[in-house]
Every structure is written in structure tokens, then in C-alpha cells.
């Protein structure tokens, strides 16, 4: 009973912390001044937000097939996120979008 309660509290804490990071990442994606700095904010939601929320849900799932699926989703997201981020940053870089903010003044 108490072990179950501790598990519940642990998973709630994880999920709330994950929600916090996801939300902060969303705010950052709106606040940051240029494209590359926005990518940093977006990776906030992609890394710790994903890890925390999915770990919280895994704790709730317990030792079931659902937990394995959630773990697979988490591993897949953590593998693809840097790849997608690199592809995006590289495409922007090759297209000539300058990473130095002083050279792109007055952009939003």
C-alpha cells in the first residue's frame, strides 16, 4: 500500500517536472531571438521533457508490455531527436542562415 503510494508520488513528481520542462521549452521557442537559439529551447522539450514524462508514465505502467512499449518510444525519440535537430541545423547552416546574431539584426 505505502509502496504503491510512494510509486504514485514518484511518478507524479516525474510527470510534473516533465510538464514544467516541456512548457519552459515552448516558452523559450517563442521568446528566443533567432533560429539557432530557438533550437536550444526546443531541445529542452525533446530531451528532459521526454525523459521525465515517459519515465513517470512507465512507473505507472509497472512491469507490463505497455512499459516496454513506452521505453521503446523513449529510446526512439532520444535517438531521432538529435538526428532531426542536426539535419535541421545543417540545412539552415547550408542555406546561409547566419548563426551569429549580430549579423541578422531586427529579426522578430
Amino acid at each position: 500500500m505505502t509502496a504503491g503510494l510512494a510509486l504514485d508520488i514518484g511518478s507524479w513528481v516525474l510527470m510534473l517536472a516533465g510538464s514544467f520542462f516541456v512548457f519552459v521549452g515552448g516558452v523559450g521557442a517563442l521568446r528566443m531571438p533567432d533560429f539557432y537559439t530557438r533550437m536550444h529551447a526546443a531541445s529542452l522539450t525533446d530531451t528532459l521533457g521526454t525523459i521525465l514524462i515517459l519515465s513517470g508514465v512507465i512507473l505507472q505502467a509497472g512491469l507490463t508490455l505497455a512499459a516496454i512499449k513506452l521505453a521503446a518510444i523513449m529510446v526512439f525519440l532520444l535517438l531521432t531527436c538529435p538526428t532531426a535537430a542536426y539535419a535541421l541545423a545543417n540545412a539552415a547552416r547550408l542555406s546561409g542562415l547566419s548563426p551569429r546574431p549580430e549579423q541578422t539584426p531586427g529579426k522578430d
Binding site: L48, P82, A85
Partner: peptide, 26 residues
Amino acid sequence: LANAITLTPGTLTMDVDSGVLEVHCL
């Protein structure tokens, strides 16, 4: 290494040119 750099927020690998990583730092 490049993926680890991208995974940690605040640093972002933009380009790999013959083994030299170009990293954008916040």
C-alpha cells in the same frame, strides 16, 4: 559525440567538416 552535444540543450552541432564539429552555443 555530435549526437551527445546536440542532446544536451545549450549546445547544438551544426556541421561536421572533415572531423571538425561546428557547435552553436547558447
